[in-house]
Design a protein around this nucleic acid. Sequence first.
DNA 1: AAATTTTGTTAGATTCGTCTAACTTATATA
DNA 2: TATATAAGTTAGACGAATCTAACAAAATTT
Lengths: 219, 219
Amino acid sequence: MMQLSYTEENYLKALLKITYESGKGQAGTNELATHMDLKPATVNDMLRKLKEKGFISYQKYGKITMLEPGKLKAIEIIRKHRLWETFLYKKLEFTWDEVHEVAEQLEHIQSAKLVERLAKFLDFPEFDPHGDPIPDENGLFKVKHKKTLSEVGIGKKAKMVAVKDNSSLFLKYVMGVGLGLNNVIKVISKQDYDSLMVIEVNGKRSNVSLKFAENIYVI
Amino acid sequence: MMQLSYTEENYLKALLKITYESGKGQAGTNELATHMDLKPATVNDMLRKLKEKGFISYQKYGKITMLEPGKLKAIEIIRKHRLWETFLYKKLEFTWDEVHEVAEQLEHIQSAKLVERLAKFLDFPEFDPHGDPIPDENGLFKVKHKKTLSEVGIGKKAKMVAVKDNSSLFLKYVMGVGLGLNNVIKVISKQDYDSLMVIEVNGKRSNVSLKFAENIYVI
DNA sequence: AAATTTTGTTAGATTCGTCTAACTTATATA
DNA sequence: TATATAAGTTAGACGAATCTAACAAAATTT
């Protein structure tokens, strides 16, 4: 398969994310543009190109779906991204919220050998520092966690296994309430009116919003 | 200082190399073009740009010299390149001749924190796998070795400390004669006519050309 | 010093990824 | 169902980095 540009790789990665998260396996031009912080016109041009190259399927005014080669390429980039995040976190002592930005650059380094050696060096990790699964060399990865903190009942406990929102802003907030990967959260109360929750982590109580709770995956 | 493009960084790196190696601290347009495998016209445009940005000094039909900001930037890139080479070699078990190509990509990753953490992780190495010095965070580096194998007298021994030519082709050749960093080389004979040398490394004798000998640094 | 060769510059074109502005099609709503 | 809004497309432009072809200046040779 021919070499993709840095830009093309980013489109495929974004498309995989959107089509996966929509549940329907499809995406729209504007949706993609918003996600990538570009104009719809720009995205439109690229879609034509990705279609010509056989990565995606779409027709004028229709929805975009990914074809197998596009999926594989996108998964490969996600694998690299998450391996680098793991490296930064585990070996270079970066914090949870710092890794993403640098990994956005590192994920585009072209060297199959590098990826496999890095995976070996890290002892073939299955999850990145945010709890997201790292696809293996065949593109297979563990099913993503589906239950969020907002679904946990009053008085129940749950273990945080991942976050949905990987933004630095959110991650700082999460750390602010003393919460980290694999921590146990107890739901103390929920207000019906505005869904504000009181949670307890390591004996510390905090008030969190519905939005917050929906961005914390638990088991 | 503003962010430089990947391309601008490569020009500065090449310029530092050329001006340094010429001994006179200057370079010409064609020389740079040849070195970077570009056309002189292309280089000419970029020189105007780098001049405007204050990285280099040159005037029409004159020679190029580097200004302090240009030198600092170039040294920073060399530092990153050599740290990554060291990482690939020491931690990911890449061979001597494989590291350069991947480091050419990694050297452009933007993150001051990454560079310093990487240096710490590698225990602040002073030389890369080719024996070249790694500048420290202030841009200072050990003086490069100047004596080559071609200058070693018959019957004398010398220790290989670096290579001048970092091409994969050359490095494979070097390894082929059983030679590696810090190995002791004994010069058995030299032919006046064509400067062919017979050398001995770890008891193994080989014939090498003048060109070969000029690309091996020794002490 | 004239002629030749080498070195450097300019003008104009091309590709990539982006934009804005104007337009078209599809969807939602009154 | 007609209209308004949202979503998507097209045309034309631009900056960055590259090229080729033609030209100009400097250096070298005879």
